[in-house]
Design a protein around this nucleic acid. Sequence first.
DNA 1: AAGCTAATCAACCGCCTGACG
DNA 2: ACGTCAGGCGGTTGATTAGCT
Length: 216
Amino acid sequence: MVRTPFIDKNGIKRGAWSEDEDNKLRAFIQKFGHPNWRQLPKYAGLMRCGKSCRLRWMNYLRPGLKKGNYSHEEEQLIIKLHNKLGNRWSEIAAKLPGRSDNDVKNHWHAHLKKRPRLTNTYSSTSEQFTESSQFDSQNHDQQSYEDGYNLSNTINGMDWIEENNNHIKTMEQLSSINNTLVEQSLPNNFQIETFDFNFWSEPLFDDFWTQSFFFQ
DNA sequence: AAGCTAATCAACCGCCTGACG
DNA sequence: ACGTCAGGCGGTTGATTAGCT
């Protein structure tokens, strides 16, 4: 489902990433971070452009990324945020820990935009915001994460009342729960350490490297 | 079984913005 | 103030897979 690899006229490799390339990029970033994407492939031994490396890292290799099916709650949140924010995928993805903007965008185009839209109604007298949707609520109760967590229970059915504090609270709860899931999905030996810079003397890399990085 | 179509999603492209000299 | 560069974002493409006829 990916483009066939090829070398362009500038000697830059394009198309699908190989496992070897993934390993090189992952290992390099875990050790040295990514202060300069354009220079990174040169020092990581990759024939890719910086943009391609960044994209691969952000959308596929970054620690904590969740793969697989979206939960009902995640989908509801995407729909709600898209109603509010439009196609600002990075902002939407920021509310969904473990999901990249590309992933969210793809999921929207592939699944969510085809569904019946939410209908919002305001009550002018009570100033209360209520919503109804045509989604299948039966699926909701059966939704659960791959690892056995049932968000429906945890966050009390996600009461989607918007434009008030309850909604913000609910989003924060979801974010917190998702963070926990992401942490728990990491390998046991995964930990955050501080990297002591003692590598190249390239001016390019000065000052960037004495910060926290992921190590495996 | 073969051919066609739709769905999926990784990757690319072009543009915008902010930092910096 | 202007030009350049890098990072980030949203839209789009295209290879592969799944499903249907």
